[in-house]
């Protein structure tokens, strides 16, 4: 059951990304381009996605997941350097190409060679991240 639900959730996610226009890099870059021809679509996508998810979080209280186990704990509120540096690097790459990890996978069938190159580079970056993370943690924090 767990695997079936995972496949269904992934399928819905992929269809939602396509329907919303978020696999079109011009719409993503258009949203980030506040000094150019600004495109507000992404705000509607994010708002639309947060509504069912906010309801789902309320629904988890006092319950268990369908397949058993427990719901994820609220994350540690500690922010840390990795979160800030990582999100900044991610944002730079996101603006540069207009793709983030979900759409990069959802558009694999129609994204052409460029889409595949992006995905391979992204996986290479993911594999490079743990040593960078270790290095960041060992570098003393500025006073």
């Amino acid at each position: 059951m767990r695997n079936l639900f995972a496949f269904l959730a992934g399928s819905l996610f992929g269809v939602g990304l396509l329907v919303s226009g978020m696999t079109d890099t011009t719409k993503v870059q258009g949203w980030l381009d506040i000094f150019g021809d600004w495109d507000p679509t992404l705000a509607f996508v994010l708002a639309g996605a947060i509504i069912p998810m906010a309801i789902a979080w309320r629904f988890t209280e006092g319950r268990r997941p369908v397949v058993g186990g427990v719901f994820p704990n609220k994350p540690n509120p500690r922010l840390g350097r990795n979160l800030v540096i990582g999100s900044t690097l991610f944002g730079m790459g996101w603006g540069l190409a207009g793709l983030c990890p979900g759409p990069a996978m959802a558009s694999l069938s129609y994204g052409g060679l460029g889409g595949l190159v992006f995905l391979i580079a992204m996986i290479a970056g993911m594999l490079a991240a743990p040593p960078i993370s270790t290095w960041l943690e060992e570098t003393p924090q500025p006073a």
């Binding site: 990795n82 979160l83 800030v84 540096i85 990582g86 999100s87 900044t88 690097l89 991610f90 944002g91 730079m92 790459g93 996101w94 540069l96 190409a97 793709l99 983030c100 990890p101 990069a104 190159v117 992006f118 995905l119 391979i120 580079a121 992204m122 996986i123 290479a124 970056g125 993911m126 594999l127 490079a128 991240a129 743990p130 960078i132 993370s133 960041l136």
Partner: peptide, 12 residues
């Protein structure tokens, strides 16, 4: 861009 997205999302 792919490298930045890969490194950044895993760090964050």
């Amino acid at each position: 861009a792919g490298l930045l997205v890969g490194i950044g999302t895993r760090l964050a």
